[in-house]
Design a protein around this nucleic acid. Structure first.
Length: 671
DNA sequence: ACGCCACCTATTTTT
DNA sequence: TAGGTGGCGT
């Protein structure tokens, strides 16, 4: 604790009142949370009564590890450090009887949600409209995040004509909820929503949990949505044993339902609230901070704060206007080569950040051409791969045979000659009798609707599932899973269905990676529910990513501004800082420029020593060359801290170039 | 049941 | 422009 500054220390030691820690970028907020947990335990509070919640598994892991370093192993026993979603899942599991869930429950991802909705819509009387399905899905998620039940949603009157589909959305919400119940399944939003509902309907259950969790710490508080905040308030109750850490200037997830105004709401809900500001930044040069402060000062602030640093003045920011996106990419690549050569640094000291994923294409090309190793964060996730989704569907079915989503996904994968016609009949039979697809396969009445042959095939499939599930319960999970894989000849099926050897090799590698993960996870979990627990960790993506230790491999890091939040790099390149990209066109039109400014702020404050901002005069967009102009945010920076390269107003050559481009653009438009 | 072609669309995505 | 998806034809 002697490494803490006075404000950090105050944040740690304030335990007699609810506390809001306004933690600027790079001000050591994780240290405050971890030190505070250690402090509480040293003050005599049992670790099992303390809970810390984060948004990402990565943050939770890091926090756990850091608390572990501050305390002896047995002192942290029972300490809860988890994401909001796994805390929610934990509550649901422990209260599953009251909530009406059978044994193992399934967690559905966004795609499962969509396919259930699609199925429901196709049976509805309204005409199927693919454009609307995303809106319905979004609406339902919105309702859940706003704490609104299907019943309440139905009573909401659409207030204007263009909200006409709302009425059907409420019906769909109701049907969807019933379907989830029948599947013994929850979606991601339910993981927060169901505990909140339960707590508000059953005070005695809430009281039990309030006794379990006597002190709550919340990380990245500005990113909480309405339900998450409600859950916090419920758990904390009147005692107000709460510390939240957040930064309104780094709120960049409002579009996903985050309510940065939850920061201000705290003062109303907890009148005894104390506020501590962490304003010393340990990351960046004074220059970088000054620029960041200057920019963000253009946003309204409910709480004033001013970041400072004593890490030295630092160099000016480089502003590099480029002719087009290709040049921009080449420029950055050669800058990195030169800078690295000059300073003798490592590739992993460099990060290239951009507003949207597609901007990475030209830069990837340039890096490859210059033999610069890079790592791209984001993109298709491991769990997006069909082979992984298929296997996970099997695993879900082992634990929860009622999971209709999983059932439909793999009943005919690999092929078992169970076609859509069979499934359609099975589906309506199950639906009419209000039983699961799985159970329906064993009903005698099914034979009246399906051929004997079809029934035999279905039953054979179900028996296989039951058999594996039984063996899993008896132990040696890994061996059972491996046997199962060879029993269904999954590998040869993958090979047959891959366009080439390369693709099938990738798929098989993915599968063994998944099995490897399960192997590792099983080492931590023992007992009857080990497999179930480890599966839900996988479904909540709570696994170490293979490139978690990026620093080991020496790569330039490429990622979106969103993905960069929480990270820091010695040298940062912000590319595509243009009107309509940052701020994004839709945000300009939707009057959301403030959040875009925060995004720019997040980008700037990632840099420790050097920051280079690039933009283009021309960029290929939707296959056509378009004229671009520098982002308005560049004008909002203190100009004396910027070093412009070939600023175009002073460069006749560039001006000529520019007018040529305008003419080209005009021609384009005319043709 | 699979493969191909044509068409459509293009912001960010912690679980 | 390019990549993903859905529909249709074999």
């Amino acid at each position: 604790m002697n490494t803490l500054n006075p404000q950090q220390l105050a944040a740690v030691k304030t335990t007699d009142a609810p506390l809001l820690v306004l933690a600027g970028a790079g001000s050591g907020k994780t240290s405050v949370i971890t030190e505070k947990i250690a402090w509480l335990i040293k003050q005599g509070m049992p670790a099992r009564q303390i809970a810390a919640v984060t948004f990402t598994n990565k943050a939770a892991r890091e926090m756990k590890a850091r608390v572990g370093k501050l305390l002896k192993g047995d002192q942290t026993r029972g300490l809860r450090v988890s994401t909001f979603h796994s805390l929610g899942l934990d509550i649901i599991r422990r209260e599953s009887k009251i909530l009406g869930f059978q044994g193992g429950l399934s967690i559905l991802d966004e795609q499962d949600k969509l396919s259930i909705l699609k199925e429901l819509i196709s049976h509805a009387s309204v005409t199927f409209d693919t454009d609307l399905i995303d809106r319905y899905s979004w609406q339902i998620g919105n309702w859940k995040n706003g704490g609104i039940t299907p019943k309440q949603a139905a009573s909401i009157q659409p207030n204007s004509d263009d909200e006409q589909p709302l009425a059907y959305a409420a019906t769909l919400y109701e049907e969807y909820s019933r379907q989830l119940k029948a599947y013994n399944a929850v979606d991601f939003d339910d993981l927060i929503f169901l505990p909140v509902l339960l707590f508000s309907e059953q005070p005695e259950v809430l009281e039990r949990w309030q006794n379990k969790i006597r002190y709550l710490l919340v990380d990245e508080y500005q990113d909480t949505n309405q339900t998450q905040y409600k859950l916090i308030k419920q758990i904390v109750g009147k005692l107000g044993k709460l510390t939240v850490v957040g930064d309104d200037d780094q709120s960049i997830y409002a579009w996903r339902g985050a309510q940065p105004e939850n920061l201000s709401l705290l003062q109303n809900d907890f009148p005894r609230l104390k506020v501590v500001k962490l304003e010393q930044n340990y990351r960046s040069t004074r220059r970088i901070l000054r620029v960041a402060n200057h920019l963000i000062a253009n946003n309204p602030h409910p709480f004033e704060k001013k970041l400072w640093s004593d890490l030295g003045e630092g160099d000016q920011l480089q502003i590099v206007p480029c002719k087009n996106d290709i040049h921009e990419a080449q420029q950055i690549a050669s800058e990195i080569i030169h800078h690295k050569f000059k300073t003798g640094g490592q590739y992993h000291d460099y990060a290239i950040l951009y507003r949207s994923n597609h901007l990475s294409r030209p830069i990837e090309k340039a890096l490859r051409e210059n033999n610069i190793p890079y790592h791209l964060s984001g993109g298709t996730s491991f769990f997006g791969y069909t082979e992984i989704k298929d296997l996970l569907a099997y695993f879900r079915l082992f634990i929860n045979p009622d999971d209709g989503s999983a059932f439909i996904r793999i009943v005919n994968t690999p092929k078992r000659e169970i076609g859509p016609a069979t499934l359609e009949k099975l589906g309506s039979y199950a639906n009419n009798r209000k039983i699961s697809l799985f159970d329906a396969c064993f009903e005698l009445g099914l034979k009246e609707h399906l051929s004997e042959n079809a029934v035999i095939k279905l039953r054979r499939f179900c028996e296989m599932i039951t058999d594996v599930a039984d063996r899993l319960k008896r132990g040696d999970t890994l061996a059972v899973l491996e046997d199962f894989l060879s029993e269904i000849h999954y590998e040869s099926w993958v090979k047959e269905n891959s366009p080439n050897d390369q693709a099938s090799a990738r798929k098989i590698a993915n599968i063994s990676e998944l099995i490897d993960w399960i192997k590792r996870l099983l080492e931590e979990e023992k007992g009857e529910e080990a497999f179930e627990k480890c599966l839900s960790k996988i479904l909540l993506l709570d696994i170490l990513e293979q490139n978690e230790d990026e620093t080991v491999t020496d790569n330039v890091r490429l990622m979106t501004l969103h993905a960069a939040k929480g990270l820091e790099f010695p040298n940062v390149y912000l590319m595509g800082i243009e009107e309509n990209i940052l701020p994004h066109q839709n945000s300009i039109e939707g009057d959301q420029v403030e959040e875009e400014r925060r995004l720019a702020y997040v980008g700037i404050t990632r840099a420790q020593r050097n920051l280079t901002i690039t933009y283009c005069r021309q960029r290929k967009r939707y296959g056509e060359l378009e004229l671009c102009e520098a982002s308005r945010f560049l004008e909002e920076l203190p100009q004396e801290d910027l070093d412009w390269r070939n600023k175009r107003t002073k460069d006749p050559e560039a001006q000529k170039e520019r007018s040529k481009a305008s003419i080209a653009q005009l021609k384009n438009m005319l043709s």
